[in-house]
Amino acid sequence: MITISNLSKSFTLHNQGAAVIPVMAGANLAVSAKECLGLVGASGSGKSTLMRMIWGNYLAASGSIIVGDVDVAKAAPREIIALRRGTLGYVSQFLRVVPRVPTVDVVAEPLLTLGVGADEARGRAMALLAQLNIPERLWSLSPTTFSGGEQQRVNIARGFVHPYPALLLDEPTASLDAVNREVVLSLIEAAKARGAAIIGIFHDEQARARLCDRLVDVTQFTPKAVQ
């Protein structure tokens, strides 16, 4: 489902003396359906960077990122948007939403852009929010005023409301208590079972052990000079 070949990336900071910072070289990995791959490595080694490159948020310097049948590294913007709509889901560490949209609409949005009817979309959103223990009285409020844990759960709900064939999860259980961590882990397991290919970053060792079929250490892709 997701195949990365010979991927490399560097940042060039033009306004800081044109400093070139190579962050990745020769990265290779593959994830198939029903598989969960864990990315490990020291902080700053490039785990989130790799994830953002798969999502299309960061540009690759060379190499290919095949998700389904689209090479994200070379695709046109509209192809990436179409991919993000139906095929590739992303739960990032930070919830970035429009400040005035109610939580239930934030979660329902991926379904609405796919053409699902408003009532059905909201219904599914509400079911997930309930599963993640977000109190009903918060559903009509914007998540910008929520606590970190609540925002994280809204983020997760949005990532799981549509059954994406491929999922990117960046620290999905951080800032969650034991009860909600359990809910999220079972959501991920369910996604795996129905055929999703998952790449995840988990700092929590137990979660890693439970979910990941394989682990990849990204420090092996960090260019030697920087190490």
Binding site: L13, H14, N15, N57, Y58, L59
Partner: peptide, 21 residues
């Protein structure tokens, strides 16, 4: 030119980097 979040989060050109920062 490119995907909005990509140009804003990973600007390549000197001027774009200046603008975003």
């Amino acid at each position: 030119q490119g995907l909005t979040d990509q140009v804003l989060d990973d600007p390549q050109h000197e001027y774009t980097q200046l603008l975003v920062s």
